[in-house]
Simulated scan of single mutants.
Amino acid sequence: MAHKIAILGLGKIARDQHLPSIEKNPDFELAAIVSRNADLDGVEHFTALNDMLAARPDIGTIALCTPPQVRFELAVAALKAGRHVLLEKPPGATVAEVEALKALAREQGVTLFATWHSRYAQGVEPARTFLADKTVKSAEIIWREDVRRWHPGQDWIWQPGGMGVFDPGINALSILTHILPAPVHVVGASLEVPRNRQTPIGAKIAFKSATGHPVSADFDWRQEGPQTWDITVKTDAGTVTLSSGGAVLAIDGATQLSADDTEYDGIYAHFAALLAAGESDVDISPLQLVADAYMLGEIRHVDDFIE
């Protein structure tokens, strides 16, 4: 029997990604929308989560697609009501609150899934397999896109907890932490913050791996025209390049794989598997790297950002 699922927060990401993937997956049935400002034809609508929890005990799973600043209390309410919860990335505004949710899910005996959609790009798992037994010499991330194109009019991204350019940049970090054989830690960062905003529009981060090789990341939200989502890893046995956010994999310049975007299909397939096994999946390593970049980052004020 399909899991009845409610989407909380019917914004762009929910409409563009969650709804199509739920519709394609026979393990899920969209049963309700919880949103103050939006509804969906043919689907029961609630304006508050507590109302839905009280009225629909048959809905056992919830996808939280709200901005991260307000997600914690909502997740707590859902978990305490015995519902399984899928968290859109980033899973929370702080590392500590995600750890608290992880502990609560364990206490309640329900599934908590902190999603990292970029890990489900088609080139990511083959890259991880290739790198597993290689000696990594260095790695570089270049992740540049146009904030006006992807987040038009979304003020929450510029507020504390909204993460700024780390909102897309954390996607790259979710891939990096998944494919590298050894963990990395932040050793320095430079954060460019518009004078009229509170989160970065650009960031450069230096990392070092547990085995000593350097890693760099260049995140920028001011790139017009073609967008850049590339990760390059140099090893003793060749250079691995993931481009187009992980959809294209090349080794020593030769394309090994080029695929369509099926990231959210992968998320819901994994969520179904977690529910069947009665397990959770809550990896905070990408969020921890962002938090550490904020802790070590030198702030540089740049020109005002005008929408």
Results as ranks from 00 to 15, higher is better:
Arg195Gly: 12
Val110Lys: 04
Ser190Ile: 15
Pro194Ala: 03
Glu145Met: 11
Ile157Ser: 02
Val184Arg: 07
Gly212Asp: 02
Asp155Ile: 10
Val186Gly: 00
Thr199Leu: 02
Gln198Met: 12
His178Arg: 15
Ala100His: 09
Ser190Asp: 15
Phe219Ala: 01
Pro168Gly: 03
Val215Pro: 08
Leu104Met: 11
Phe166Ile: 04
Pro126Asp: 10
Trp116Thr: 09
Val165Pro: 00
Ala139Thr: 11
Ala210His: 12
Asp155Ala: 13
Val98Cys: 03
Val165Glu: 00
Leu112His: 04
Gly202Phe: 03
Asn171Ala: 05
Gln154Thr: 09
Ser138Gln: 14
Gly161Cys: 06
Ala139Glu: 01
Arg195Tyr: 12
Ser209Met: 02
Gln122Ser: 14
Thr199Glu: 11
Asp167Met: 13
Gln154Ser: 11
Arg144Ala: 07
Lys137Gly: 10
Val98Ala: 05
Gly162His: 10
Phe219His: 04
Lys137Asn: 15
Asp146Gly: 06
Val110Gly: 07
Val124Tyr: 03
Met163Ile: 13
Lys204Ala: 10
Val193Glu: 06
Val98Leu: 00
Ala121Leu: 10
Glu192Lys: 12
Val165Thr: 09
Trp116Ala: 04
Asp167Val: 10
Asp167Gly: 14
Glu140Tyr: 13
Glu99Lys: 12
Thr129His: 13
Phe207Asp: 07
Arg106Cys: 07
His213Met: 03
Ala182Pro: 06
Gly162Cys: 03
Asp155Ser: 12
Gly123Lys: 01
Leu176Asp: 07
Ser216Pro: 12
Ser216Leu: 12
Ile175Ser: 04
Gly161Phe: 02
His117Leu: 06
Asp133Arg: 11
Tyr120Met: 12
Ile157Arg: 06
His117Ala: 15
Gly109Gln: 08
Trp156Phe: 14
His151Lys: 06
Val147Arg: 09
Thr211Asp: 14
Ala182Gln: 15
Leu173Asp: 00
Trp156His: 10
Ala206Cys: 03
Gly212Trp: 12
Thr115Met: 06
Thr111Met: 01
Leu173Phe: 10
Ser138Asp: 15
Ala203Leu: 09
Ile142His: 01
Val165Arg: 04
Thr199Asn: 09
Thr135Asp: 05
Ala139Asp: 09
Val165Gln: 00
Ile157His: 02
Pro183Val: 11
Val186Lys: 00
Thr129Val: 14
Ser209Arg: 08
